[in-house]
């Protein structure tokens, strides 16, 4: 097993943990954090492939990771703002309780 496999497996594990958290936790904040974790797992993949890739001088993987971090920051700011707005409206951040649209 080469070490690229190690990095990819760690990344896959982080992605699955993030997915599990986003699917199973009740708190909206933790669902957002789970999505952040999945984005981070993708970043680790970009960096690992950049390092082990044939054309490292092009820096494409690093660039993609940098832009991805920027987008994740924007996503976190807007997402947490929405959580705050929802909390003000329905007085809860738990996703199970936000069922006012249910018939």
């Amino acid at each position: 097993m080469s070490s690229l496999t190690g990095y990819l497996l760690v990344s896959a594990l982080i992605f699955s943990i993030g997915l599990a958290g986003a699917l199973t936790r009740r708190s909206a904040i933790l669902v957002l954090i789970g999505i952040e974790l999945m984005l981070n797992a993708a970043n680790l993949n970009f960096i690992a492939f950049w390092r082990y890739g044939p054309n490292a001088q092009a820096l494409t993987g690093v660039m993609f990771a940098i832009f991805s971090i920027g987008i994740a920051a924007a996503e976190a700011a807007v997402g947490l703002g929405i959580v705050l707005a929802v909390y003000r409206h329905s007085k809860t951040t738990e996703l199970d309780r936000m069922n006012s649209m249910k018939g």
Partner: peptide
């Protein structure tokens, strides 16, 4: 097969 790539 790409996973077994050696470290450049």
């Amino acid at each position: 097969s790409t996973s077994s790539r050696p470290l450049p």
